[in-house]
Simulated assay, not measured.
Amino acid sequence: MNESTVFLIEESFADGESVSRFLQSYDLRVERFDHPSQFYESHDPGTPGCLVLDLNVSLVAGITLAEQISQQGYCPPYIILGGEPRTCDLARAMRSGARDFFEKPLDVSLFVERVREAIAHDEQQRRQWEADQSVQKRINSLSPRERQILTLVMDGKLSKQIASKLDISIKTVEAHRANILRKMHVDSFIQVVCLIANKRELLDTQVRSVA
């Protein structure tokens, strides 16, 4: 697995160098960027870590960056440094994954502690995201009809009821059910239910897209 990285984004090289230096002095791996767009262009979602945004960069630009990355799948947690942001900007930042806000001069020990917490949160959040991605990949492998039948199974419908609702034979329903188990990499529909129970929206999104 890749080493967790603190992605430092801010325009002032002198300040950035200082922040980088004390983070590195705490044995944290740091990668620095001059602007959100520079990070966006090179971001690898497979690299774990957290973002640190200095308000020398527009806070709105930083929040927009987080929102754009989230739309692509996963955005690491981030911390905001400096300035006096508007309450509405902070509220938007928290919704997009901001973990904390620090005024300058920094309380270095507390800041580093919160950076480590953000990295730990990323590890936990990333495991859940990767699990969701695995389930989504399996759901994506299902045909539209198989997703439709799986939705009905999740709703508690029996094969006979599904066959009647879809105007197909029970034998056809059973064939689709067997394909669903194979593609979902499980042995029973109890396992399918357990796998999707807390991720029903992943299946519902796919069904709506083919409805």
Rank of each mutant, 00 (worst) to 15 (best):
D15C: 05
E130R: 07
A61Q: 15
T47S: 10
A118C: 01
P45H: 02
T47R: 09
S37C: 00
L53S: 05
L195C: 09
T205K: 08
R126E: 01
L202W: 03
S4E: 12
G82Y: 02
S134Y: 11
G16L: 04
A98K: 03
P85H: 01
I80A: 04
L59D: 12
V135G: 07
R182G: 14
P45G: 00
I168M: 14
L158E: 15
A14E: 14
S169P: 02
V112A: 03
E113V: 05
N140G: 13
V192D: 06
V207A: 09
R145Y: 13
D155V: 01
A211S: 13
A91F: 12
N179S: 14
I119E: 08
Q125K: 03
V30S: 06
G82Q: 05
I170F: 11
L8R: 07
H176R: 10
N2F: 11
S20H: 02
L8V: 02
V135E: 06
E31Q: 15
R127P: 01
G46I: 02
R200M: 09
G73D: 00
D107T: 12
I80N: 06
Q24S: 11
V193H: 12
V192Y: 00
G46T: 07
A131C: 04
L65S: 01
V19R: 08
S159N: 12
Q161M: 05
E67C: 01
T172S: 13
S188Y: 01
T205E: 14
L202F: 02
I180P: 06
R95V: 05
L55E: 14
R177N: 07
K160N: 12
R95G: 03
F189K: 05
C75K: 03
A120E: 15
T87C: 07
H121G: 11
R21G: 04
V52I: 12
R92N: 09
Y74V: 00
